[in-house]
Amino acid sequence: MALAALSGTATRRRDHAGGMSAFERSRRRLYLPFVVPALLLHLVFVIGPTAAALWISFHRWDGVSPMEWTGLDNYTALLEDSTFRTALVNTLVILVVAGLAIFVISFVLTMIVRELRWKSFVRSVLFFPHIVSAIVLSIVWGFIFQHNGVVNTILDRLFGAEPIPWLNADNLFVMILIGTVWLSTGLYVTIIMAGVDRIPQYFYDDAQLAGASAFQRLRHVTLPLSWDVISVAAIFWTISSLKIFEFIYAFGGTTNDLPPPGVWNSALFVYGESFGGRSPSYLFGYASASAILMLGLFAFLVVGLRRLMRRDPIEF
């Protein structure tokens, strides 16, 4: 029966190859039933909660008692809150500094790996940190870098060096940045490499014959011809950098305790003001306001970035 229906459809499609209108009409009729389920799920699980967060952000609310309308008080308090300002700066530093590092390293690795014989193996190795849970990695990193950890032990054995306080308050955020780069680079190498792999070899051969250096090949061949992939990757990084949570939480904190507020990003701020810590603050209005502010800021950044990176697609 299914087969019959299938062959029937094929015949009809061929019959109507010239007049698309019937096909278009049917397509349109199908449009709604296929879109509605996804739209409903999106409404229930994304748009609904976002709207609720916006509503909650205008209130003082402990999660149980009736909400108390406070207007924009949460927002003005946030701008005065030095912990929030630190979290905002940290989020932007992760976005820009870790982002730049990830993309530069990804390009360098892409250029190197392209030439290698064990390309797919190297690619898998580079991708590996991205597969392993960030929590597991952060715990391992904690043990490697702590005072009596592996790194200090090796430095001591080799050079007799005094232990370096990698995880103290001054260095913790830098370690988090390095960890984030290490965790994410593999993914972006893979994405960018997939874009670069599409570029036909003869462009490179031609450039090489014309005497182009490696950097010139990158600038005049690789970058323009993989620009669409890079811009998607940049947007993807912007959005995912906002959501980094578990690495900072597990690396800087313990089972019951939040990391020090000096290394919070905006995601940790939301958690810290709502459910986090040994004695949670349950400030749901305040936490929602910070989430809404960050959502607005990042929506702006994503739109800006898209405009900035817009180029006419190059066909090849």
């Binding site: 232990p163 990698w166 308050a169």
Partner: peptide
């Protein structure tokens, strides 16, 4: 030493 740069429960 290391009280400021270790991971609980080290």
């Amino acid at each position: 030493p290391g009280y400021d740069s270790s991971k609980f429960p080290a």
